[in-house]
Nucleic acid binder design. Sequence first.
DNA 1: CGCTTATGGTTCATTATTTGAACCTTAGCT
DNA 2: AGCTAAGGTTCAAATAATGAACCATAAGCG
Lengths: 261, 261
Amino acid sequence: MSTIGKALALLDTLSRLDKEAGLTDIARLCALDKATARRFLVELEKHGFVEQDADTRRYRIGSAPVRLARIREARFPFLRVAIPFIKALAESSTETVHLSEFSGGQLSTIHVEDSPRAHRIIVDVGSLLPFHATASGLAFLAFCPAAEIDKALKKPFEKFTEHTVVEPQLVRGLLDETRGRGFSISHQGLEAGVISTAAPIRTPSGRPIGCVAIAAPLSRTTKTAINEFGAQAIAAANAISEKYYGSERPAGTIANIRRTD
Amino acid sequence: MSTIGKALALLDTLSRLDKEAGLTDIARLCALDKATARRFLVELEKHGFVEQDADTRRYRIGSAPVRLARIREARFPFLRVAIPFIKALAESSTETVHLSEFSGGQLSTIHVEDSPRAHRIIVDVGSLLPFHATASGLAFLAFCPAAEIDKALKKPFEKFTEHTVVEPQLVRGLLDETRGRGFSISHQGLEAGVISTAAPIRTPSGRPIGCVAIAAPLSRTTKTAINEFGAQAIAAANAISEKYYGSERPAGTIANIRRTD
DNA sequence: CGCTTATGGTTCATTATTTGAACCTTAGCT
DNA sequence: AGCTAAGGTTCAAATAATGAACCATAAGCG
């Protein structure tokens, strides 16, 4: 693997820890030599991607990503565009609605609007969504090019619950169904007692960039409700895509790059 | 320079561009070979730090920094802590107040509260603050360890206005004054007609992490007002530091790392 | 319509950087 | 003091990065 890849993987590992970590732990978690880990950390620190606490000598994510994120969001305000739709959907469905984005080979949760009900599904911002075991993952993968589906199906799938579908052929079947109806259904794929539906948010060229998903307790969710949620998820996903890539084309958006030069 | 450093410098360059850039431009701006630039971009893209637009083939900052920034802000909510104080200061001073943070060897603006007056100073979020020519830069540097001051004074200083102090000995004098009074004054150092005062936000160990600065039109700012602004900037900076590193020590903050293990 | 130019993208022998075992240093503990 | 564990450093050996030259594609033009 390239040095850059290893350093960025270290950053990723550091970000997934729930608190600051010391050099030895970081090296162990990343399967790197202590000296290597240290050099990476020093280099990342120089550029503000990590910070070392002066007192404890532990390392944490630095402020450079905050600056980059502000720039990215200013130019490419996906969240800002999407959140109102997610909120509206959470209100109308009265269930937990979450938004995911594909980044770095993984689908991760970037926003959650909780259900107003007492009995509700909790989803954490930042959590990863396995392709085979979540509605978002299935919805995302179903609309990817065939080559990528084949690639994804080659990796072994983890069995999270007794209902998780892990056989590649069966997963392929779920993807085909998803493509047919426009939204995916995950029946207790990641957690027992939870049923989710999701629809992909796609670029104008059709490539998925993330998903809108509704997660509800299995116990109160009828088949009719599932279909209703699916239709609402599709509507929200399409609305986000339209707004995001839409015809307004303010300066600096993707939509008008071709036109301006 | 290390490969990681070069790749992160590329990311930095890309972030400072005002729109997406093509491979050739990026390579030229970073003084890298096209093949090298491409490999870096591919590697950065794998981890979500850059994205290539499918249509235009141009590159932009990816979504990974957004995820990292959310994590950083969740654990280390500097902005969230600081903004109320900045807002309060902008109201009470009726001038533009901005907050800077040291990251990656540079001091950059991370938040601005505009003056409510029609005639006001505009500061952009993201703008870099030279150490010798801005109140923030002087306030930051003045409270750094002597070795770092010496290092900073070795680099040549740019003359932004006819008032910019660029001679290392004179800059050192300004730093000494700043340390003496607790806040810095920049008299038209970066822009003609602007006078600024700034105070450093420091860790409990005394190391500066950023600054609070007030920028006002020279024409309406008396010597008394400058001293008043300086005192207010110090108060705000200390208040932020206290709140941030303070005694409340909720789970996950820096303050209690030593105590929890 | 074919020629030219510009850009994105790729290859592979050469070169420079990364690597890690061993070592040193510091801080907390008994 | 002596012990342990963690952070941090060194330098020969191993490995990955480099870039000149290459190909592919698309736009501009006589």
